[in-house]
Amino acid sequence: MSTILPIKTPLMESDVTNLRIGDKVAISGIIYTARDAAHKRLVDLILRNAELPFDIRNQIIYYVGPSPARPGRPIGSCGPTTSQRMDVYTPQLLARGLRATIGKGNRSETVIEAMKRYKAVYFAATGGAAALLARAVKNAEVIAYEELGAEAIMRLEVESFPVVVVNDVYGNDLYREGITKYRRE
């Protein structure tokens, strides 16, 4: 449990089929940010059969709206936002080849099913540990929807970004397991 698995993006199917819930993972490479407003736009593009601003196949989307970077720093604080709000859009992105998402909080049954089907995983980063998580971000660049401010799509270069596997490709759910183990009723 306490060993940390290093993984590099892009993620292939074999990278994620190895992962199980509760695994601690350190992600290095490129990840993309998107939250509510960007998701709406991405799925609008998919529905119109238009090209997306980046190739999402085998990529990771991080649900985050960072605070502004101070001069000389790549990014401000950047912890995860609540994933549930993206549930309505996620299956369509997974169908297009998205391999993993990072956020915090529970996913819907529909998303968990879609992850099984398309061989994708869901990672959680520690919500509210945003200054600590910023240390793992080495570079950040807005690549689409700059006018959305904190909701723009950014390309982040990360080094050992710490997450835990909450939903694996086998339909398991770490949150459900945790509650079952520690409930006292």
């Binding site: 915090k104 959680a124 520690t126 835990v164 949150y175 509650i179 183990k181 520690y182 409930r183 006292r184």
Partner: peptide, 10 residues
């Protein structure tokens, strides 16, 4: 007693 725990991890 719900068992949710920090970050919902139990």
């Amino acid at each position: 007693n719900l068992g949710i725990g920090a970050q919902g991890l139990g």
